[in-house]
């Protein structure tokens, strides 16, 4: 297993860890943090597999995709945080209320 595969597996691991935390944690800020970790994991998978390119230069297209992804992630995070604060000011709690099961 070379370095690229090691980092790719790490990315997968981060995604799985984030997924678990997303399911288990109830606090909205923790969920948003979990999404960021999952995103980092997905980007790491993409970038690590780009490292498989031979010679000195890694494949730049996945790098561009990751940069785009990082910017999209910060935009979504910023919006999610503002929404979370509104939810707290309306319901008094930074949790989603229990949904009546349908």
């Amino acid at each position: 297993m070379n370095a690229a595969m090691l980092y790719a597996l790490t990315g997968a691991g981060l995604f799985a860890l984030g997924l678990y935390a997303l399911a288990v944690q109830a606090h909205l800020l923790r969920k948003i943090i979990a999404f960021n970790v999952m995103g980092s994991g997905a980007f790491l998978v993409l970038g690590a597999l780009a490292h498989r390119a031979p010679d000195q230069v890694a494949d730049p297209v996945p790098h561009a995709m990751v940069i785009t992804g990082i910017v999209v992630a910060v935009s979504a995070t910023a919006f999610a945080l503002v929404l979370m604060l509104r939810v707290q000011s309306e319901t008094g709690q930074p949790h989603l209320p229990e949904q009546p099961s349908d």
Binding site: M5, D59, P60, V61
Partner: peptide, 17 residues
């Protein structure tokens, strides 16, 4: 499942370089 998929990929790939 994801790890199995990743490990099945070739060790070298130029992509769009």
């Amino acid at each position: 499942g994801l790890a199995a998929a990743l490990l099945s990929l070739p060790a070298e790939a130029p992509g769009l370089t």
